[in-house]
Design a protein around this nucleic acid. Structure first.
Lengths: 219, 219
DNA sequence: ACCACGATGGTAGTGACTACCAGATTGATA
DNA sequence: TATCAATCTGGTAGTCACTACCATCGTGGT
């Protein structure tokens, strides 16, 4: 076991990784994604192109790195098996978003939220990134299905869970786009709740039993 | 207007297009998508690589060409504005699928259905194709939103329609995967109806008023 | 018969990404 | 402390998707 503590090597690796990604996002935002080559990013970060590929398998991964999936899966596994699937999933998505943004909005966003915002803006404007982001949902979807699997039974349980999870994630994706286009001026969790309500019915209630606030329509 | 009738030139063009795609699907299935180069496809089809790119902008488009979107949008525009959005969209998706497969299943599939099946099998096994296919739904989603726009009103009507449409399409995508993995042995429209029921509730009814089969768990 | 246009092919180039190899630094062990 | 293995990094050369730019030839209308 080479690393018991955050060893020096691991810290350096994480550091260069952050450096590369920061320069990448800056260049992509300034010049555009397609107009920026991986070599440009490498030069800006002071490393060789090889090193960039070692840290980020593809150029798209420079923008789309997410582990927020495990968090969602844990919340789902902890939720009550009594509720319908979409409610369990939707509640977890809303709660995770609320944790991420910390309740701030507008100019009062957390660093994490601002980071997410910058990446979403790039994703919206670049077809390749949009496609990859949607495909990334496949991993999250699988994690959700696994989290549900212990509770849901039946011959087609897996299929039904897949359908519910993919629909919820699609609605969330729409909400993320909306939120980013609004420059984060509304609460992300509210936007997600609104999208879920539009898709699954206005009686949609989040995991804590509160009704989603959303726009004036949902009060 | 150069073409009033299917002129000879247009027919030739369509012919080579079909030839190229047929050889592409064959090679992709035999050797795998990544292991087949565009040059391979061109040689097999007896044309130059340039010609392939003229007919199919990207390699992925050799597999993912769909115009079934217009059909869906027309059905939605023709549906009753009284029903909830997801029911209108879902009904259109189910009906379109039924038209496509013509009710056949198993070894009794129409040529169109077999063609779709081959393309779906490739899509499932190739990440790049999966991603592109999901992104292609964006165009269909926009068509659906436009078809709904005339009837739905409200401050966030567009956003709500986006959310509903994306969720429905995601559920349909899950159903397509399921159907292909089952080698088309079940009726595609039934699988889609089952996925929609799993996501949006067991009371989901398709456009013709029939109840979807679903599994016994969903009374 | 003539001419404009559209389809095809060739050449050269860009850029993402990979395989293979070499040197340097770190972390644990004798 | 000396040593050795694992890891990080850089270089080279190559593949492949994809894109101008230009030449050629057949089709379709005048």
């Amino acid at each position: 076991m080479p690393d018991q503590h955050p060893t020096l090597r691991a810290k350096r690796r994480a550091e260069t990784q952050r450096t590369i990604q920061a320069h990448a996002l800056r260049l992509f935002t300034e010049r555009g994604y397609d107009a920026t080559t991986v070599t440009d990013v490498a030069e800006a970060a002071g490393v060789s192109p090889m090193t960039v590929y070692r840290h980020f398998p593809t150029k798209e991964d420079l923008v789309l790195i997410d582990q927020h999936g495990r968090l969602v899966a844990e919340r789902i596994a902890a939720s009550s098996a009594e509720q319908p699937m979409v409610r369990r999933i939707g509640g977890a998505l809303i709660a995770s978003a609320a944790t991420l943004t910390g309740g701030g909005r507008g100019d009062d966003l957390t660093a994490d939220a601002r980071f997410l915002l910058a990446r979403l803006r790039l994703m919206i404007s670049t077809p390749a990134l949009r496609a990859k982001h949607l495909d990334n949902h496949y991993a999250l979807q699988q994690a959700i299905v696994d989290a549900l699997e212990d509770d849901v039974t039946g011959p087609d349980a897996g299929f039904h869970a897949q359908a519910a999870a993919s629909a919820c994630l699609a609605a969330m994706h729409t909400a993320l786009v909306r939120w980013a286009e609004d420059d984060g001026r509304t609460e992300l969790s509210d936007v997600i709740a609104e999208a879920l309500a539009a898709a699954f019915g206005d009686d949609f209630v989040d995991g804590n039993g509160r009704r989603p606030r959303g726009s004036q329509k949902y009060q």
